[in-house]
């Protein structure tokens, strides 16, 4: 270690690996992982999400799962919660759609209307 700058660079890199443990108000992607979701391919959707986030180096986005939301017909369901924005629920997700959603919604802020099945207007 030769300088504070060197330490800072190392710290910024290291912070990404433990950001998950800080309780921050960032973007959350929630995948429906009930039996219905899993049967419809939710695991593959989630793996695609995690992989895409890693490729795009989006360490501040948290991926979690939830149980069946009751709308088994439209599984796999993926919800996106961002501070100050309405909650968006996507239905009939596939790994390809999931990757597309990351690029369009998470990176560029463009909700893909075509895939949306619900929009919760209460601002979270």
């Amino acid at each position: 270690m030769k300088s504070l700058d060197e330490l800072k660079k190392l710290r910024e890199k290291a912070q990404e690996t433990i950001r998950l443990r800080e309780q921050t108000e960032g973007t959350k992607i929630i995948v429906g992982m009930g039996t219905c979701g899993i049967a419809a391919g939710a695991r593959e959707v989630m793996l695609a999400l995690v992989d895409e986030l890693q490729k795009k180096n989006l360490a501040d986005v948290v991926v979690t799962q939830t149980g069946c939301a009751g709308l088994c017909e439209k599984e796999p369901l993926v919800e996106v919660v961002r501070p100050g924005q309405p909650k968006i629920t996507y239905g009939y997700m596939t790994p390809e759609k999931a990757r597309q959603m990351i690029t369009s919604h998470i990176v560029n802020g463009q909700v893909i209307g075509e895939y949306v099945i619900a929009r919760e207007d209460t601002v979270s």
Binding site: S3, L4, L7, R11, K13
Partner: peptide
């Protein structure tokens, strides 16, 4: 209970060794 004690990077991520750097510099 928040970091892996065997991994110096996790300590550095939580502002580890910043105090030492500032003191020495």
């Amino acid at each position: 209970g928040l970091i892996d004690p065997d991994n110096i990077d996790e300590y550095i991520a939580r502002d580890g060794y910043e105090a030492l750097g500032r003191v020495l510099r």
